[in-house]
């Protein structure tokens, strides 16, 4: 755990010096003191951006862990219950009809993400098939399909020269527009949500058991699940509203954490937070440094994530404990 913390802090600090100004690669620390522009750039552009990448990675990984534990299913991720597609639909709506104003797009994304969860939850009560968790997952799939059809329609009617690229870029995710304003709007929600999830991590173990067993251990599983679900979805909606859809982090990082530190959420949740934070920062560094233009971060998380995933899962046993 200490090792992972050190890795994350190092990655964070190094990232402040990585970029394409004054030239691709690292800025010499000495230059930072002399060059006013470089100093300003680090403080007002890179710092908020790296912070957001950190929050993004932590939130998606932690929420991913929570989702996988409370659904007792290692294949789910935080966008599952209509959250990602809802956010995307809201953002596309904002880009298309409300003049692509930054905060409006964000707000709409967040609102529709929460609506996605709400619909899924409501629908799950109406379905007459299978157990509660299965119904919830199926409803999530249905709601996601509904929103992605909506996105299809919006893309279809969007102006192919101006609006369509915006929507596509948003769907691939990116932290290019981040300033202190975004950090300020997202931070309180994220900090509160992560704090609650981190402190309640032992409960995740209990909730990964079937309902009756959890009940016999003295808790009301459905209530606690709903509470954790709302927290995890809330913070996911908050970061996705500024970053766009960032795939795979919420699915892979929890797996890797469990691989490294065991399934017990006392260890796997903090590991998820630290690994997720480092992973997202590194992906964002690559996305803004390698090419003169920006590579959407969603592409990188998928690419790097998938490769790492296969490597780590194909090793017999790697334990850090």
């Amino acid at each position: 755990m200490i090792l992972l913390s050190v890795v994350m802090v190092t990655v964070f600090l190094l990232s402040l010096f990585v970029g394409r100004y004054p030239e691709p690669g690292l800025i010499a620390p000495g230059r930072l003191l002399k060059d006013q522009l470089a100093f300003k750039l680090v403080l007002s552009l890179r710092l908020p951006r790296v912070l957001t990448a950190l929050m993004l990675g932590m939130v998606l990984s932690c929420a991913g862990s929570v989702f996988q534990m409370i659904f007792a299913n290692p294949l789910v991720e935080p966008g599952l219950l209509g959250v990602s597609q809802g956010a995307a639909f809201g953002a596309a709506l904002g880009i298309l009809f409300l003049n692509n104003v930054g905060w409006v797009v964000q707000a709409l994304a967040a609102i529709f993400a929460v609506l996605g969860l709400g619909f899924s939850y409501f629908l799950a009560h109406k379905l007459r098939f299978g157990g509660w968790l299965l119904r919830l997952i199926l409803s999530g799939i249905a709601v996601s399909a509904f929103f992605s059809a909506g996105i299809g329609i919006l893309k279809f009617v969007a102006d192919p020269l101006s609006e369509l690229p915006e929507i596509t870029f948003w769907l691939l995710g990116g932290l290019y527009g981040i300033t202190w304003t975004e950090v300020r709007s997202v931070f309180p929600v994220v900090a509160a949500g992560l704090f609650i999830l981190y402190r309640m991590r032992w409960r995740l173990n209990v909730l990964s058991l079937n309902d009756m067993t959890a009940f016999s251990l003295g808790i009301f599983p459905e209530r606690e699940r709903l509470f954790l679900l709302v927290c995890a979805t809330g913070i996911t909606a908050a970061v996705v509203s500024v970053s766009g859809i960032v795939a795979w982090v919420g699915l892979i990082v929890p797996h890797v954490s469990r691989r490294l530190l065991g399934a017990d959420s006392r260890y796997s949740v903090p590991a998820s937070l630290l690994l997720g934070g480092s992973f997202a920062i590194i992906c964002d560094d690559v996305s803004r440094t390698v090419l003169p233009g920006e590579i959407p971060i969603g592409i990188l998380t998928s690419l790097i994530g998938a490769v790492l995933f296969v490597i780590i899962l194909s090793k017999p046993y790697v334990r850090l404990k």
Partner: peptide, 26 residues
Amino acid sequence: TRRELGSLMSLVPQSEHIPFEYSILE
């Protein structure tokens, strides 16, 4: 309360689905 009952009664179910690789002690 549910918690009181948890400390008064315990259940050994017939079988149990265990989704993750917990250690026995955990």
